[in-house]
Design a binder for these strands. Structure first.
Lengths: 250, 250
DNA sequence: TCAAAAGTGTTGGTCATACACCCATGA
DNA sequence: TCATGGGTGTATGACCAACACTTTTGA
């Protein structure tokens, strides 16, 4: 057991939790397993890491092989390494999540259609997934929830031009809360990170909304100068409730 | 390369960044390497993970072997897996940090004294460490900085009873900023998470301070109810400066 | 009596929240 | 003309930031 060579008998994989946003819902891309173990169950896309491959490269490869997309937002979240998590041997997995623009990849159009599918995240969380993938999905979703409050990564899930309502719905889906329309707009616009394209939606059966674009360069500049993108995490009502509880218990 | 068995030739290690707090400074426990590679350089404590050992168990073991401490605050941060990061082969490492009460372990008293030493974090960050340990240390320090703003983990670094000034110095050391005494006290005390022990410091050459204790049970209860411990991250002055820059650039 | 740190309140400003109506379009 | 979502402003209150002097102890 103390021979160094005895240690070099493990493998590691990456799992890449691919998030998309469509029709007001946050989605995650799952694969139906065609073979044992866990045959027939939905699983997170992942693969063993090649011996000469960096972890991020592997995560990008998984994404690329599945969707054909490259240069996508990718974030390492956590490593899962319970001894018995994989039936084939000691395999620890490094979990990443990616944020993609859902229009860029639709499994309906691909030959995978039967086995690769976008799932509503809330529903996927309730479904029994292969391996320890439920825990991984929860962890990654929470990481995204955390991140989105503190960095403007939500835009990675939207098309290049979007309306403020779409953006708001995105935040509502990720934070799982309702936001006040006027306050949301005020806050977002006050950051001066959106470019008004001076274009309108077309073909909608109501007053068309203005289209905006995220000003990434400006954000990066401000970030370098110490600016912090930040959204709050609870409504006043909620905080009041908490305070009341605090009083009761104290 | 596609044979599954080819993959089971890697190893993984844990590195455990052990933080302590003393004399107003945040410290990190480093080990001087006695053999190649990187002989003579300081390194983060770590070890290969046994085949039948969970990752957290391994991180705890590293801590226990080094300090004799158990049941210590431990947090996984990130996994580092660059192909060439270890000269002996493919070894990826999962980085954890621990927070310990520095009085519980002093390497001066141990036989390690020559090779295990508390280092000031700022200085360690400027020193060349073994492997990719500079990057790991920076990442873990930043994770701690982040965490401490949002969860009351700082108390893990203090003795069970402490003064408010000690607590403030701790935050100042981790956040690397000065805090206003009155505002800090107001904020901390308003959370109702400190128990006033009705004891005073003894033998100090000035007015003795009251001793407090962190009310962990109460915190856990409040947390379960949705309460959020939260300190802000920048001073008003800083934000004003940023705003001014924003105006200039906009 | 001196040095050193403990302890303590108020004010002004900023920012978050709450909230309701009119507008533009396609059907 | 109706249904649908787009777009807009203000008043209130909470919280944060700034700031200086008195108190208690040991030497």
């Amino acid at each position: 057991m103390n021979e160094v060579s005895n240690f070099f008998k493990s493998a590691f994989s990456v799992d890449n939790i691919i998030f998309g946003f469509d029709e007001g819902d946050l989605k995650v891309l799952l694969i139906k397993r065609g073979q044992a173990p866990f045959k027939g169950l939905w699983a997170l896309p992942g693969d063993l890491v090649y011996p000469n491959e960096d972890l991020e490269t592997a995560a990008n490869r998984v994404l690329d092989e599945l969707t054909g997309l490259e240069n996508v937002y990718l974030e390492q979240v956590r490593t899962f390494g319970a001894v018995d998590r994989h039936p084939l041997g000691r395999v620890i997995t490094i979990a990443y999540y990616s944020l993609i623009k859902i229009a860029d990849f639709s499994p309906h159009a691909s030959s995978f259609a039967q086995t690769v599918k976008w799932h509503n995240v809330s529903q996927a969380q309730k479904t029994k997934l292969a391996f320890d993938h439920n825990i991984i999905l929860n962890t990654c979703f929470n990481a995204l929830k955390q991140k989105v409050r503190v960095r403007p990564v939500g835009f990675e899930l939207l098309p290049p031009k979007f309306t403020l309502t779409e953006l708001q719905h995105l935040y509502e889906a990720i934070l799982r809360t309702k936001l006040d329309k006027r306050n949301f707009r005020k806050k977002i616009l006050s950051m001066n990170l959106l470019i008004d394209r001076n274009e309108l939606q077309e073909g909608v059966p109501h007053r068309p909304a203005k289209l905006y674009q995220f000003d990434k360069e400006r954000y990066q500049q401000l970030e370098a100068e110490g600016f912090n993108f930040e959204l709050k995490e609870s409504t006043k009502k909620e905080r009041r409730k908490k305070l009341a509880e605090l009083m009761d218990n104290g």
